[in-house]
């Protein structure tokens, strides 16, 4: 497992140079609430046909900063992005609420204060 740090501003450039569809399998987007309004976002990849090779890009952020969407690079990323929008109440370009919770729901269950 390799962890690489990135920032929200350089995320698209970093993943754009890193990701090749035939080499890397995109797993999911993950969020971890660190408390005090901080959140760690992770983009997880694994390599086809190679043992135990997982790459995690992570970036620190807060609830308010908009998160760039990866859909232009990885079309299947929209599921994971909609999930973090629902679960943490983040803003992701092009992803709406309503995957698991209601569209107008005020809940964000996985935030640490909720």
């Amino acid at each position: 497992m390799t962890k690489l740090e990135t920032t929200l501003a350089t995320l698209l450039a970093d993943i754009g140079t890193f990701y090749e569809p035939k080499k890397w399998h995109f797993l999911t987007v993950n969020g971890i609430d660190l408390g005090e309004g901080k959140i760690e976002l992770q983009w997880i990849f694994s390599k086809y046909g190679v043992k135990d090779e997982i790459v995690i890009y992570y970036a620190l952020s807060d609830y308010e900063t908009p998160v760039p969407s990866l859909v232009s690079l990885i079309p299947s990323a929209f599921m994971g992005e909609r999930e973090i929008v629902d679960m943490f109440g983040l803003k992701v370009d092009g992803a709406e609420r309503g995957l698991y919770l209601d569209e107008d729901s005020l809940q964000h269950p996985l935030r640490s204060e909720s």
Binding site: N30, I44, S76
Partner: peptide
């Protein structure tokens, strides 16, 4: 602190 579950069908839905 965190348990993240990514299930097969979740990733399969776009395909």
């Amino acid at each position: 602190e965190r348990v993240r579950i990514k299930t097969p069908t979740f990733s399969g839905i776009p395909a």
